[in-house]
């Protein structure tokens, strides 16, 4: 066994400072590459932010990096005019409404369905669940035209409710999939114990499964929130005056370079909320991603 020991990599504990330095130097290319790439990845967002603080004329002169030589050009006047712009503020309110509705409703619906798929017994359960898995990848393009017709007939066109219902439906397959897979991991003994105590299924669902399922529900809530907040296609198709922030910005794109002092700050506002959510709940976001990366 002694020979194997010598062939094994040197134990890190007893490493001398010199070899530690050597090891670090040996890794220097990796550090440099990662620093370079990391900075590269941040530049576009930084550029958007700095551009959003420049006047439209300043942008015509030179790009956002002029702020490094003339920091006085950084002002928040554009943001003041963005928040004074009624189109933008009402679009933000619309976005918030769509996102809240489009997050809570699918979670509620999917929690019931996920529980049924995980813990209730009924004929065809597995086939129905496979149907849900199949629906995961149905492109929403398949629904745009018929739902457009339907909404026009029943008066849901150009309403927040219409958008929320659509987001709910297309969020459901993923939501059911995620919650069912999480619920099924809850120890059977807990459920049995509750049943023996005479608790109804509804009670078990509300008092046992939902509290235990909170981490999964949190992941799902973040996903669904980001998905609805960031949507452009659905709102563009089923709305005209009911504009979330993405659509409001989209309608300004035609005159890109002259309205850059509105587009850039409005875009940054629209992306600030998802970033805050992302940084606050990063853990749940990544967990949800890993649990459901089949979507």
């Amino acid at each position: 066994m002694a020979t194997v020991d010598t062939a094994a990599p040197a134990p890190r504990m007893g490493e001398s400072p010199a070899s530690r330095v050597l090891r670090w130097v040996g890794k220097a290319p990796v550090h440099l590459i990662l620093i370079f790439v990391g900075v590269l990845w941040l530049v576009p967002t930084l550029g958007l932010f700095l551009t959003s603080t420049l006047g439209a004329e300043d942008f015509q002169d030179e790009g956002w990096w002029q702020i490094f030589s003339e920091p006085s050009k950084l002002t928040f006047e554009n943001y003041e005019s963005v928040f004074d712009n009624e189109d933008i503020t009402s679009a933000l309110v619309t976005t918030v409404l769509i996102s809240i509705g489009g997050t809570l409703l699918p979670i509620a619906v999917a929690a019931f369905a996920g529980y049924a798929f995980a813990w209730l017994d009924f004929p065809g359960r597995d086939w129905l669940f496979i149907l849900v898995v199949a629906l995961l990848v149905v492109p929403l393009q398949m629904a745009l035209i018929p739902i457009f017709d339907l909404y026009n007939r029943v008066g849901l066109f150009d309403t927040v409710l219409g958008l929320v219902l659509f987001h709910t439906a297309f969020g459901l397959p993923f939501a059911i999939f995620l919650l069912r897979n999480f619920f099924i991991g809850i120890p059977k003994d807990l459920m049995e114990a509750a049943r023996i105590d005479g608790a109804s299924e509804l009670r078990i669902f509300l008092r046992v499964v939902l509290p235990l399922g909170l981490p999964a529900i949190a992941s799902l809530a973040i996903f669904q929130f980001l998905w609805t907040w960031n949507d452009l296609l659905v709102a563009l198709t089923f709305g005209r005056d009911t504009q979330p922030i993405t659509v409001a910005i989209f309608s300004q794109l035609r005159a890109f370079s002259t309205t850059i002092d509105l587009i850039a700050p409005a875009t940054f506002v629209s992306l600030a909320i998802p970033l805050v959510v992302f940084f606050a709940f990063q853990r749940y976001f990544v967990q949800g991603l890993l649990a459901g990366s089949v979507k």
Partner: peptide, 22 residues
């Protein structure tokens, strides 16, 4: 740093890059 763009809408990311590409 690399994961951050995932949180942002593809639309906002697109505008960000449109500024990069002038």
């Amino acid at each position: 740093a690399v994961f951050m763009p995932m949180a942002v809408s593809a639309f906002a990311a697109g505008i960000t890059w449109r500024i990069v590409y002038v």
